[in-house]
Design a protein around this nucleic acid. Sequence first.
DNA 1: ACTTACCCGAGTGTTTTAGTCAAGTATATT
DNA 2: AATATACTTGACTAAAACACTCGGGTAAGT
Lengths: 161, 161
Amino acid sequence: MRLTTKGRYAVTAMLDLAIHYEDGPITLADISQRQGISLSYLEQLFAKLRRKGLVDSTRGPGGGYRLSRIPAEIPVADVIIAVDEKLETTRCGGLGNCQEDERCLTHDLWTELSDQIYNFLSGISLGNLVSRQTIQDVAARQDGNQKINLDTVERETVAVS
Amino acid sequence: MRLTTKGRYAVTAMLDLAIHYEDGPITLADISQRQGISLSYLEQLFAKLRRKGLVDSTRGPGGGYRLSRIPAEIPVADVIIAVDEKLETTRCGGLGNCQEDERCLTHDLWTELSDQIYNFLSGISLGNLVSRQTIQDVAARQDGNQKINLDTVERETVAVS
DNA sequence: ACTTACCCGAGTGTTTTAGTCAAGTATATT
DNA sequence: AATATACTTGACTAAAACACTCGGGTAAGT
C-alpha cells in the first residue's frame, strides 16, 4: 500500500464537495483555493474521479463538479481506489506468487493488513465525515480564510490597476 | 504511510530468525538464500535492526544474528518502524500543521487510520506468526528448496571443477 | 463573440526505492 | 600466526514513482 498526496488530495477534494453538497456545482478553482491544492493537479484527479463515476461535471459558466451520489453513499475507500492508489500491501498484489510463483513467508500477514485497511476505509463515508464537529470546524475556518483571501486579492488588484 | 519492500523484507527476515530461533545464530547468507533477498540489502536492514536493539549479532565463523527477545515479545510493528518505515498516514507526521500551520480537512481521518494500522501490527508478534500452520507450510517448503538449491550448487561446482 | 470552466496529454525536476560495491573489523578455527 | 568466516560501514547509482506544470483543446452559458 502507498498512501500519498494523490489519495489524500482526492479525499480532501471530495470531502470539500460533500460539505458544499447543497450549493450546486463547485468549481475546481474554489476547491483549489480552499484546500490549497493546485488547480492543474485537481484537474488530473477529477478526470479519474469522473471516469470512475464518483462525480458529475457541468461545463461552462456556473458549471463545476458535484458528487454523483449523496455523501453518505460514498465510502472513502472508493475515492482512494479511484485515483489508482492501491490499498493492497502485498508485493504480489494479492496473487500469491511473491516468491518464485509460490507464497512468500509473510503473504498472509499483508493480506490481513490490507483487509483491515480496506474495511476501515469502507466503513467511513464522506457523509459520515461531514457530520463530525472537528471537520465542520476546519471547514468554517477555510470558508473564513477564503473570504479573507478573496478580499486581499481584490484589494491587491485594485491597488495594481 | 508507505509499506515497501524495505519493511516487508525486514519482517520476512525477522520471521525467518524466529522460525529458526532454536538453531543458534543464523547467518545473513542463510536468510538471503531462503527468502530470496540480496545479501547486501539484508546487511543494510540488519544494521538498523541491530541499532534498534531487535537483534544481537556475533561475528566470526559460527556467528550470525539472533533475536534479542523471544519471538512472542517482538511485535511486527516494531520491526517495520525499526527500518524507518512510518506507519503514519498523515502528511504532517501527526503534527497537525498540514494546511498553513492548521489542520487540514482530513487530518483526523488519517490519524485514525494510522492508529488502526499501528494497533493491528502491534497486536501480532513474530511468535504469533510462527505458530500459524500456513507459515509453517511455507517455511517447510523453503527449507526443502534450500536443500535442493545447495545440492544443485554442489553438483554444479563439482561439474565445473 | 466571448468568457467560463471542464478536458486531456505530454513533459519534467525531484525524491525514493532497491539495491550494488568496496573496504573494512572482530572472532573462531587450524 | 594464518586464514576463513561473517558482521559492519559508507558511498554510490539506475530506475521508478511522485507531484506536479504547461499548453492546448472543447462545451456551455450570456
